[in-house]
Nucleic acid binder design. Structure first.
Lengths: 262, 262
DNA sequence: GAGTGGATTTCGCAT
DNA sequence: ATGCGAAGTCCACTC
C-alpha cells in the first residue's frame, strides 16, 4: 500500500511514518498533502486558535502553506510562500510548524491522527492567461496606442491628478492632450464622471484643450448621451483583443530573449 | 490498493475509475482531492486559459473549488462555495465543470491523467477564534461600551464623516459626543491625527463639545504627548479580551437560540 | 439586490 | 524597503 509509484502516498499511516514522509517532502521541496485531525495555532500579525478537527494541509514547493476546513473558499489558516519549517513528534503528536520571518508569523499544526499523506512532485510549466483585467488593457493600449485612435501617443500612465489616477495620458495626432479612461467591462456613468473630473483637473493646470477618451468594450445605456454632453469620446476596446496583443508581445519578448542567448 | 479504509483513495487510477470516485464524492457531498495533468479554462467575470500541467484540485463539501499550481498562496483558478457540477468523459479525458450562477461563471478542468484521487468525509466542528481584528474589537466595544468608560453609550459605528469613517460614535455619561478610534495594535501618530480630524469634522457640524477617545492596546512613544496637546483621551483596549467578549456573546446567542428551540 | 469597508488580505509594480 | 492600487479579489454587513 505504501510508497508505490511516482506518488508517495500513505493511507492511515502511523504518525511517525507521516513525519518521515513530511520531512522527506520538505527536504526535497515537493508538494505535500496531509489530511487528519489537528489543532491549528497562528501567531503573527494577529493570533488565532482552532481546536481539533479534520482538515486538509497543503504545503507547496515554494513553502506556501494552506490549511483548509471542509467548507469555504478561503483557507482557515495559511502562510505565504517562502517560509521555513520545523517538524517533530511531541507527546505522541505530529507537530508541523511553518515560520515566516518578515513579518514574523508562526503557524503550528498539531496532528493527533493522519488519514492520508502524500508527497508529490508536480511539473507545471504552462502559462496562465487571463483575459481582460483592466491593467492588461492599459498595457495593451500602451503597446498599441492606435487602439485608441491613429496618431495617439501615450506620455505616461497611472498619472496622479487631483481626484485620483489617470489610466493613460498622452497626445493626439494634433498635439492635444488626451486623457484615456479604461474600463474592463461596460462603462457606466461613474466612469464618465471620473474621466470628466480628470479632464477638468488637467485642463485647469495646463490651461489648454484636453480631450477625454473612454475606452471600454461597451457603454451602459444613457452613457453615450452623457459623453456627448460633456464633450468626451468613446472608443470600443475589446479585452480579449488586448489579451492577444499582450500575449504576442510576451511571445516576442521571449523570442528576443532566446535569440539574444543563442 | 483501492477503496481501503474510511478514506477512499486511488493511486494512479484509470480516468474512468477517477470519474466514478469524483461522481460519488460530489453526490455524497464529500471533500474531493485530485492530482493530475489537466487543462483549466475559466469563463465568467473574466476569462482565463491554462495549458496542460500537473495541478491539485480540491472540491469542498459546500461546492467550493480550488485549483492549485505547485507554487503560490493563491489558487490559479477557483470557484466560491455553492456551485454546481458536471462530470463526463470526453475524448478519453476526464472533464469536471463547476458552474456558478450568480454571477454566471464556469470553471472547466480537463484531465489527461490522474495520479491521485481521494474522496474524504471531514468532520470539523471546532470554532475558529481570531484574536484582534479591528472589526472584532469594534464589535466588543459595542457589546461592552464600558470598555471605553463607564456610562459610554454608542450611537452608531462606521459613521461616515468628511475625512473617512469613524469607528464608534456615541455619548458619554455627561451627554457629550464621543468619537472612538480603535486600533488593533500600538497606536501611532497617524491614528491620533485621524481621530483629531474626525472630532474636528463633527464639531464643525454639531457646534458643541466633541470628545475623542483612542482605544488601542498601547501607544507608540510620543503619542501621549500628542494626545494631550490635542485634548484627546486614551483607553487601553486588549484585543484578546475583545475576542473573549465576542466569544462569550456568540456562546450566549447560541444558548438563547437552543433555549428558544426547546 | 447593490454598495461599502476590512482582510493575518495577496500580488505586482513604481518610487 | 515602502507604498499604492487592483483583484474573477472574498467576506460580512448596511441600505
Amino acid at each position: 500500500m505504501r510508497n508505490r509509484g511516482p506518488a508517495n502516498v500513505l493511507v492511515e499511516p502511523e504518525l511517525q511514518e507521516a513525519l518521515t514522509l513530511v520531512r522527506e517532502g520538505l527536504a526535497k521541496r515537493k508538494t505535500l498533502f496531509l489530511v487528519g485531525v489537528c489543532r491549528v495555532d497562528y501567531k503573527g500579525r494577529a493570533e488565532s486558535k482552532l481546536g481539533p478537527g479534520e482538515r486538509v494541509l497543503l504545503v507547496k514547493e515554494d513553502g506556501a502553506v494552506l490549511v483548509h476546513r471542509p467548507t469555504g473558499y478561503e483557507p482557515v489558516n495559511w502562510q505565504p510562500e517562502g517560509c521555513l519549517f520545523q517538524t517533530r513528534m511531541m507527546d505522541d503528536r505530529l507537530v508541523i510548524r511553518a515560520i515566516r520571518s518578515k513579518p514574523r508569523e508562526v503557524l503550528t499544526l498539531t496532528f493527533n491522527q493522519v488519514n492520508l499523506a502524500a508527497q508529490l512532485h508536480l511539473v507545471d510549466r504552462s502559462e496562465f492567461i487571463l483575459y481582460a483585467s483592466e491593467r492588461d488593457m492599459r498595457q495593451a493600449v500602451l503597446l498599441n496606442p492606435e487602439l485608441i485612435e491613429p496618431g495617439f501617443k501615450p506620455i505616461t500612465y497611472e498619472k496622479k491628478v487631483e481626484p485620483g489616477f489617470v489610466d493613460v495620458y498622452g497626445v493626439d495626432r494634433d498635439g492635444r492632450f488626451v486623457v484615456v479612461e479604461i474600463k474592463r467591462k461596460t462603462a457606466g456613468c461613474g466612469a464618465v464622471l471620473q474621466l470628466a473630473k480628470y479632464v477638468g483637473s488637467i485642463k485647469s493646470v495646463v490651461n489648454r484643450e484636453v480631450r477625454g477618451v473612454l475606452a471600454a468594450p461597451s457603454m451602459a445605456k444613457g452613457v453615450q448621451r452623457l459623453l456627448v454632453t460633456l464633450g468626451l469620446d468613446f472608443k470600443p476596446l475589446d479585452p480579449r483583443k488586448c489579451a492577444e496583443i499582450l500575449h504576442k508581445a510576451e511571445t516576442k519578448k521571449l523570442l528576443e530573449f532566446f535569440e539574444g542567448r543563442t
